[in-house]
Write a protein that binds this DNA or RNA. Structure first.
Length: 698
RNA sequence: UGGGGUGUCGUCAAGCGGUAAGACACGGGCCUUUGGAGUCCGCAUUCGGAGGUUCGAAUCCUCCCACCCCAGCCA
């Protein structure tokens, strides 16, 4: 392994640029551009491109990056988007200085270039309709055929083109086409359209134009006019590069270099404008800036910082292979950033009341709490403590499982920055729900340290009941339940991937008093709970709402999950987790109850047939061999995870064999297949190895 | 069956003929008044596959396989 002596490793684009610099290709200039079409909001995928383009420019002496709106299609674009895009780029921390450009500013110049091409016999006016053009373009494997108008004379073309500009023809009547090669293996080269007639006013040029340039024609010209050295775009434009080059070469003008990289895909979300717009329009989210959206405005409202997003874009790298970045990396980046800067506060999200019996009735103590252990300069604050406090419901268990360090009857824990308390009594309501706890405190442990050196395992956050600010807190989770929702084969399936629990609203949260004065946009760490930002849209004076940005890493949750998993497989197996919670209605498992798990009869089954069930979008019908001579029919609500049931055939599964057969609308279901949810994905329990149908599983 | 791309750890990603960086995730230890943070350790005998060239191949050659993109008067 050679030591990387020269600088640090760079991506392939930076290598190309370094090489160009070395050969003095552009006289030492580096100029890039970020060219959004103003027809939607920017998302994290755009952030990757923004960071790339602006950072590359910044890395070189004299390098600059332009912000250019590619506004060549007046029917799709709106001013609202221009403003949001400018705001987002700025917020991300990048500066285009005085280089804010619009493709529409070059329309006249482009027009002149078009006449130049016509005069050179390299472009012609075609009278064919859109349909005719499509039909004569050929297919991927067959060449196209030439337009009957292809060989018009230069004068006629010029005249027609000028009349197109003058408004002499209705929409669609004519187009200007480049005269290249109708049998070119690259479809983009089969006489591509350069101009179309659109009698639509443009948000910047008004009614000055009724012909508008197409992307392929316009983009290279924009780059050339601005003197861009490296025109960086995404992979799907790779096929367009020959055309980009063709136009520029034919014109004999300055010729930037187009370089393509793979766009960002993020797990558990979608990135296409169309899909994002769909989520907004169909009301799955409240808007483009909904905190669940991967848009820059959504992330901002969620509590993400520009620094975290930039670090993320840096960490994911730049390459040409299609990839899917784990959203856990994004979460890591925001945690890392916020850990250093977010002030800590105490907030009880799901309150459980505690009365400290031996604490003086009317005493209120102001205790010191550290604002940020990572940053001594952040100082300390006072937190009021009194006889009645709230702790998190989840921080008490009447019957604590193994490794549970928190409060339980008879247990002593520390209240952060306050006292050790011991649980002496539990008050429940009629339904058996724990309503209130009684505890005693040890006055000697004020501040949280025991003079006798005794230790407690758990430290809980708390809020004094009398001083608490009651507030709404919104808990956000991923928008989709599957890693790659875009892989859905149709709309219905796509919709079924949407996470119904992506937003949970908590109305009765108890916050420490200092949080009452939070300004919109301020970010805090609620100790032990996560990072939260004061919402900047729905907050009202005196009534601040908080959005959860991301949870803290939760070791206990992991342990508990592992325990449950262990129970599932060891103890009485079952617990029949099959899809039930995840798929909503679970026609199979719902009514089946087994009091004693030891009675469950688990058997090896081999799936012999599997298919979809007509009229049930969650079910799959399988025929399972349990070695009984006949196959058993089982309906399992696992379609979400197995879109192609055929692939289940031959798999060994665990079947609960001694259930009472259940009559369903679609037929008799004679058993149940074990399935579980891991990492958010539903899957059936399966295994390799030589086992025979009907073998007992233990 | 045309053209253009891409295949290195679960996920990103270095590597450019000298014997597989790093990050996230995951597992484990230490530490801890956040089961947070921090810290330490582990985690690809192998680079889509098969041949070949070479003292030496993820890197070069040949063939094969898989995946992505392209038939808007969208960008």
């Amino acid at each position: 392994m050679p030591i990387n002596d020269s600088a640090f490793s760079t991506d392939f684009i930076r290598s190309i640029i370094a090489e160009d610099l070395k050969t003095n290709k552009n006289n030492g200039r580096v100029m890039t551009r970020f060219p959004p079409e103003p027809n939607g909001y920017l998302h994290i995928g755009h952030a990757k491109s923004i960071c790339l383009n602006f950072s590359i420019a910044k890395e070189h002496r004299g390098g600059v990056c332009n912000l250019r709106f590619d506004d060549t299609n007046p029917s799709k674009e709106e001013i609202e988007y221009i403003e949001s895009i400018k705001k987002d780029v700025k917020w991300l921390g990048f500066d285009w200085e005085d280089r804010l450009y619009f493709a529409s500013d070059y329309f006249e110049q482009m027009y002149q270039y078009a006449e130049q091409l016509i005069k050179a016999g390299a472009a012609y006016v075609d009278d064919q309709s859109a349909d005719e053009i499509r039909l004569t373009r050929g297919t991927l494997t067959e060449p196209g055929t030439e337009s009957p108008f292809r060989n018009r004379g230069v004068e006629e073309n010029l005249d027609l083109f000028r009349r197109m500009r003058a408004g002499g023809f209705p929409n669609g009547a004519k187009v200007l086409r480049a005269k290249i090669d109708m049998s070119h293996p690259n479809i983009n080269m089969r006489d591509p359209v350069m101009y179309r007639i659109l009698h639509t006013s443009h948000h910047r040029t008004g009614d000055k134009w009724c012909i508008y340039p197409m992307y392929d024609w316009a983009h290279g010209l924009e780059d050339s006019i601005e003197g861009i050295t490296h025109s960086i775009c995404t992979l799907e434009f790779e096929d367009h590069r020959p055309l980009y080059d063709w136009f520029l070469d034919r014109l004999g003008v300055y010729h930037p270099r187009q370089i393509e990289f793979a766009r960002l895909n993020l797990s558990y979300t979608v990135m296409s404008k169309r899909k994002l717009l769909g989520l907004v329009k169909e009301g799955y989210v409240t808007g483009w800036d909904d905190p669940r959206m991967p848009t820059i405005s959504g992330l901002r409202r969620r509590g993400f910082t520009p620094e975290a997003i930039r670090i993320f874009c840096d960490k994911i790298g730049v390459a040409k292979r299609d990839s899917m970045v784990d959203v856990a990396l994004l979460e890591h980046c925001i945690r890392e950033d916020l850990n250093k800067r977010a002030p800590r506060r105490m907030a009880v999200l799901r309150p459980l009341k505690i009365v400290i019996d031996n604490y003086p009735d009317n005493l209120v103590e102001e205790l010191d709490a550290v604002n940020n252990p990572e940053d001594p300069a952040a100082g300390v604050r006072k937190v009021p403590f009194s006889k009645v406090i709230y702790i998190e419901q989840d921080d008490f268990r009447e019957d604590p499982p193994k490794k549970y360090y928190r409060l339980a009857p008879g247990r002593e824990v520390r209240l952060r920055y306050a006292y050790f308390i011991s649980c002496t009594g539990v008050i429940k309501d009629e339904s058996g729900e724990v309503r209130e706890l009684h505890c005693t405190y040890d006055p000697a442990t004020r501040g949280g340290d025991a003079p006798d050196g005794r230790k407690v395992q758990g430290t809980l956050h708390w809020v004094s009941a009398n001083h608490a600010v009651t507030a709404e807190v919104r808990l956000y989770d991923r928008l989709f339940t599957v890693e790659n929702p875009s892989a859905a084969k149709d709309d219905a399936e796509y919709r079924s991937f949407i996470n119904p629990d992506s937003l949970q609203v908590l109305n009765d949260c108890k916050l420490e008093p200092a949080l009452g004065e939070a300004e919109p946009g301020e970010i805090f760490q609620f100790e032990r709970m996560g990072y939260f930002v004061a919402d900047s849209v729905d907050s009202r004076p005196g009534r601040t709402l908080f959005n959860r940005t991301v949870t803290l890493k939760d070791t206990w949750a992991k342990i508990e999950k592992a325990q449950v998993r262990k129970q599932d497989s060891n103890v009485a197996k079952d617990k029949e987790k099959p899809a039930k919670h995840e798929t909503g209605a679970a026609p199979v498992g719902e009514e089946i109850t087994i009091d004693d798990f030891s009675k469950v009869d688990l058997r090896v089954g081999v799936i012999r047939e599997a298919g979809l069930v007509e009229g049930a979008d969650k079910l799959i019908r399988v025929m399972v061999d349990l070695g009984e001579g006949t196959l058993r029919q089982i309906f399992a609500a696992i379609r979400r995870a197995y879109h192609e049931p055929e692939k289940l055939v031959g798999k060994q599964v665990v079947v609960v064999a001694n259930l009472k057969p259940r009559q369903m609308k679609f037929g008799l279901s004679e058993g149940m297949i074990l399935a579980g949810v891991g990492k958010g994905a539903l899957s059936i329990a399966t295994f390799e190895g030589k086992l025979s149908p009907g073998d007992k599983v233990s």
